[in-house]
Design a protein around this nucleic acid. Structure first.
Lengths: 227, 227
DNA sequence: ACGGGGTTTGACAGATGTGTCAAACAGGAA
DNA sequence: TTCCTGTTTGACACATCTGTCAAACCCCGT
């Protein structure tokens, strides 16, 4: 018999990630959680409150891991490899996250960007690496936008398959739930090869594929937001 | 004084592309069109009817152009260049299309895929080129999924910047409405370079859309990751 | 001026959604 | 037992949404 609050958060995550704030209803979440709708309001007074909890949790789950990689002194391509690796692990567990962020980036970009900034350590440090990225790119771009070019390339390649997953299932994978994860494992070296081809400096070591990667789950559950 | 029906379709497109079927309301569309909500029901009896008109129009605007390119006998990389070029032209005019399709692919993949099939000429022909794509790819993948790998790579690179546009505006471009189109022009050779790096056969000619001739020495030094 | 047909609107019914409230239901302390 | 406190629910008020209908409107031919 799990705690009511964790039940609520789990159900809310499922529903919000699939539909976004606007299209999701408290009724949807109550049914998903198997409780009465009123109880949702008891724990989280409004839909926005509950949504905010899910949003903060989702951002906090991803951003710090990525920020800590970016802030290291590793070579650029090594950072990219680790970032891609981290995202793939995370997204294979939560394939709806890209869809959720796409919806919310459109609905209220300001709030979302601000939240990401707040969980990024010194996000401003990113602007300091812009020149560095511009120097490393084989194709010349204005330094001011070098980070944007790299960002859209990396995130486009990594996130898009998850956005298109329902169509891929329909056309290529049928009902086999293992097919998509296997596909993404095969896609990973393709992604890294494309990104590596942008760099002047070739990657240091092959080091890809799936080495002794320990299965790692997030060991911490942080299920207790306050109302 | 434009025709009421075109006014309605234009407003419906604006609202549906931004919010998708579920989150959009007939009221939203009526306000956008500057008419009464009842009038929408006069021209299109239900919301689904109106939505269907927009969906069919959006698909018909894109898919035949792409299908006609794919069905030619051009070399693979040439096809890709033309597909990318066509999408960029189209999406710079309608930057919300990727967002719309992402929402609707999740809401009802079956209907959308079926509609795309119906506008693709012989969509089945795509499966015939799978082996061809697999042979051309530098990184070995099962032929059955070769098209899926190429599809996610191309579409991820091309569509994602439009999905992330609100965040890019917020972080990089500020209020300058010209910045994003310029950015995409600069991103285009990056996209093509990444895709070309996947191919065994190098692209035939530079043949770049950018009028500024860039004397780019052929970057043959492609690091080929071995596994 | 007079009809008449296509166009447009206000008003309504019924469904669904959010948020509040008081009452019912625990289960442990005194 | 009774009391108390935290949990859960049903019922309500209010807003919004969809779809229908009859009435009003406009414009053109007669």
């Amino acid at each position: 018999m799990p705690e009511t609050e964790t039940t609520i958060l789990l159900a809310a995550k499922t529903v919000f990630l699939r539909k976004g704030l606007e299209a999701a209803s408290m009724q949807d979440i109550a049914v998903e959680a198997g409780i009465s709708r009123t109880l949702l309001h008891y724990y989280y007074r409004t839909k926005e409150t509950l949504f905010r909890a899910i949003l903060v949790h989702a951002v906090s789950e991803i951003i710090p891991r990525i920020a800590s990689i970016v802030e290291t002194d590793l070579p650029l391509m090594t950072k990219i490899e680790r970032v891609v690796d981290n995202y793939l692990q995370l997204l294979l567990d939560d394939p709806l996250l890209p869809h959720f962020f796409v919806i919310e980036i459109r609905r209220d970009p300001q709030v979302l960007v601000e939240l990401i900034r707040s969980r990024s350590g010194n996000f401003g440090a990113l602007h300091r690496v812009q020149q560095q990225i511009a120097d490393e790119l084989r194709i010349p771009v204005p330094a001011k936008h070098a980070l944007a070019h790299l960002f859209t390339s990396v995130y486009g390649l990594v996130l898009f398959p998850f956005l298109a997953k329902p169509a891929l299932d329909e056309v290529f994978f049928g009902d086999d739930p293992q097919a998509f994860p296997r596909f993404m494992q095969a896609q990973k070296p393709i992604i890294l090869a494309m990104l590596a081809s942008l760099m002047k400096t070739p990657p240091a070591a092959p080091a890809n594929g799936s080495p002794k990667a320990k299965k790692q789950n997030s060991p911490r559950r942080s299920p207790a937001p306050r109302r």
